[in-house]
Computed example of a mutant assay.
Amino acid sequence: MNAESQYEDSVSSMMLENIKHRLLNAFRIPAAHVLNNGSSNPCNMMIVAKDSQAHEELRRAKIDGAITWLRTELMEMRSQDQQLAKTLLDLNREIQKLRRENDLTRASEFGQINVTIRKDSPFQAARPEDEVSIV
């Protein structure tokens, strides 16, 4: 895994943790509100506390499920992004190759061409020091 992917992973994890904390804070029931519902009976307070705890656990489970789903979606989006980037690079290479071929064709139609083939060119000569000149 390269440094850019690791950076993206850490940023994604930080974003998800931030979302998780905001969701938890948004759905948290303050303890004072639960206990100040007018019930002073200890038995009723225990029932309310247990109900509140069960409700909180259910809420956390839903939030964890949502975060898992978001993480899966982000990973899929990253994969699609990488595939698109590769496709665009391949298309760019093909366009550059076609432009060079077009330039060579036009130059040969006008009867003069002076071409130096570079080492990294797709039209590479047998030896790197070979130079092709057509006049």
Rank of each mutant, 00 (worst) to 15 (best):
S12E: 03
A49W: 13
L91I: 13
C43V: 15
Q80S: 10
R28I: 05
A54E: 04
A54V: 06
L89W: 11
L70Y: 04
R59C: 10
M77A: 09
L35V: 06
P122N: 05
Q82C: 06
W69C: 15
I67V: 13
L16M: 04
I29W: 01
D103T: 13
N41Y: 07
S121K: 01
P42H: 07
M1R: 11
D51Y: 10
N92F: 13
L23W: 01
L16W: 01
S121Y: 06
A125M: 15
A26T: 05
L84V: 09
R60V: 08
R22Q: 01
S52V: 09
L70V: 00
A107L: 08
E109V: 12
A3R: 02
P30F: 04
A31V: 14
N92A: 14
V135R: 02
E131D: 09
E76Y: 01
E76R: 15
T87H: 14
W69T: 09
A66E: 00
R127L: 01
D51I: 09
S39V: 15
K119E: 12
N37H: 14
R59G: 08
N102G: 02
K20C: 04
S12W: 00
K50Y: 08
R93K: 10
E56C: 07
A66H: 10
F27V: 13
D103W: 14
T72E: 02
D130Q: 05
A31Y: 11
A61Q: 15
S121C: 02
R59H: 04
Q6F: 07
L16R: 00
L70R: 01
N41K: 08
I19T: 00
S13V: 03
